[in-house]
Each structure stands twice: as structure tokens, then as C-alpha cells.
Simulated assay, not measured.
Amino acid sequence: MKRLSGVRLRVADMGPLIAFYTDVMGMTATADTQGWRLGYPGADADLIFLPGGSSYSHSQDQRYWKIGVTLPNLAMAHAQLRAAGVQVSQPRQFLDIGYMAHLSDPAGFVIELLQWDFDGNRPPDAGNASLPLGGQARIGQITLRTGDMAAERDAYSDMQVLSVQNVADHGFDLHFLAYAHETPPVPDVTAVANREWLWKRPYTLLEFQHVAGVNFTPTSAFEGLEIAG
């Protein structure tokens, strides 16, 4: 079975990134013939850092946007990051999408932290304060931007659409695709009731932020996706 197994990013300085993702984010680093793989145990995707990049600055007109790290207890993860001196935004419930916070790694790549449960719905025993980010973190999403969702659906026609989320007030909609053989709890993929289920998936979703008709700029830092199987 296919799975989304990695996102390939070309970077200028590998050392600070490896230290940040292992020491702060709790990932495991493995060297390979091309660069370094960093990730969590399980079926979710890895970060694949390749040498030879230049300095990176994120812009909202770029095709590559971010990774999303899903986890059981955002308050716990947020407190750990602040204690480690990491600048991270205050957690908030963003509309009916999710309870989240944002930060950037030492290279400037954006990371979204997304709690499995909406604000107020988290079980009281969620997370383990002795583990990085409260434990059980995974790369839940790799997010790209697009102006033509029909073309993306054609390009990734072997992926299943698990959720479509309209964020009209912000001028975009979100589409979540995966190599999965699961049925969301509610058959309507636009249903809000599916969203907490979605953030608990053990594999990585390919997320598209769709702004109709907009052409987004490629960045040399984004080398593409790795798909296993």
C-alpha cells in the first residue's frame, strides 16, 4: 500500500535543524546517502533534509507552506517549547477546524501544532509531561498551496479525499488527501464532525490550501514529496 512517507527540503545549515528536531521536537534523526531523515515512530512521513540549500524565508505566495504536527495535549507541548526558549504562538481554537499554535524551526520552515481534540474536548489524562511535546506526536500534515484544486486531484488521483473545509472568511478552502482505506465517521467530507477524527489519523495527510486561480511561486527549498510503495 502506498503512503506519504516524506517531504524533501533543501537546507543551508543541517546542524541546528537536527538539534532542534531531536532535542526539542522529540524526533529521531538518521543519516542516509543524501542527507538526514527526521521523524517519529509509526506510519507518518519523515522530514528529509538535503544539503545545498540557501537561506530560506517563508512567504504566503509560495507553493510550500508547512508541516503540521498533531499531538494529544497542546497546552503541555506549548509549555515545554516555551521552557526551551522557543517562540511559539498562543494556542487558539481556529474556527471549527482545530485547536492550534504555530512556530518556525531554525531554518524558518513553518510548523503548525494541532491538538487531536478541539479546545475544551481534550481528555484530562491526555499527554505525558515526561515526553517531548507530551508524547505521541506525529507529522499529521504536509501543506501545499494551489490555485487549481482540480489539477491537484488529477495529479493525486490515487489518494482518497478525507475532508474539505471551507474557510471563506479567509479566502480559501482546505482539502485533505491520504493514501488510506478508511471511511470518515460522517460520509459528508465537509462535515465538522469528522475533524477531530481527522487529526487523530496515524498517517500523514497531504493538505492543500486552495485559493482559486492564484499562481503560487515554487521555492528552491522544497524538493518535493516522497511516496513509498
Rank of each mutant, 00 (worst) to 15 (best):
Q209S: 13
Q115P: 05
P72K: 00
R3Q: 13
R138V: 10
F109Y: 12
D61V: 07
V69Y: 04
G171L: 00
G224Y: 04
E196R: 14
L4M: 04
L198M: 15
W116H: 15
D61T: 07
D188A: 07
M76V: 10
Y203N: 07
N128G: 00
H175R: 10
I48K: 02
G53L: 10
L225T: 03
R153N: 09
A221K: 01
W36Y: 13
Y64M: 10
L95E: 14
D32T: 09
A150F: 00
H58E: 06
D46H: 15
A45E: 02
L162N: 05
T143Q: 12
R63S: 13
T204Y: 04
L50I: 12
M149N: 12
H181M: 07
T33N: 12
S5N: 10
D119H: 14
T143G: 07
I142P: 07
F176V: 00
A150W: 00
Q141W: 01
G127E: 01
G26S: 06
G127M: 08
P184I: 06
D96I: 03
A107L: 06
G52M: 12
L95D: 13
N128I: 01
A129T: 12
V211R: 12
A77L: 01
A178Q: 00
Y64K: 10
D125G: 02
G52N: 13
G120F: 05
T28H: 06
A107G: 03
M1N: 14
R10G: 11
S130E: 13
T33Y: 00
I139S: 10
R63M: 11
M159A: 08
H58Q: 13
P16G: 03
A126T: 09
F176D: 04
L38K: 12
G42S: 10
A75M: 11
A155E: 06
P184C: 07
G127L: 10
E223T: 00
T146C: 13
P51T: 06
F49G: 08
Y56L: 04
G224V: 11
L205S: 11
V186E: 07
A101G: 12
A150H: 06
T146M: 11
T70V: 09
M14Y: 03
G26D: 07
R37I: 02
E226Q: 14
V86Q: 04
I139D: 11
E182G: 00
L114S: 11
L9F: 05
L103H: 05
A180K: 08
V86C: 05
A43V: 13
I227V: 15
V214R: 14
T22Y: 03
R145L: 01
L71R: 02
G52P: 09
D96P: 04
A155H: 10
L4I: 05
M100C: 13
H210V: 14
L9D: 07
L74T: 08
P132T: 06
A228V: 08
S55D: 11
S163F: 00
L81S: 04
G68M: 09
R195M: 14
R153F: 11
G53N: 06
T219Y: 01
V88F: 02
D61F: 00
R138L: 13
D44I: 01
T30Q: 14
D125T: 14
G147C: 03
R145E: 01
Y64H: 10
R8V: 12
E207Y: 02
N121G: 02
M27T: 12
Y64P: 05
L38S: 08
G42H: 06
F222W: 12
N194H: 08
G98D: 11
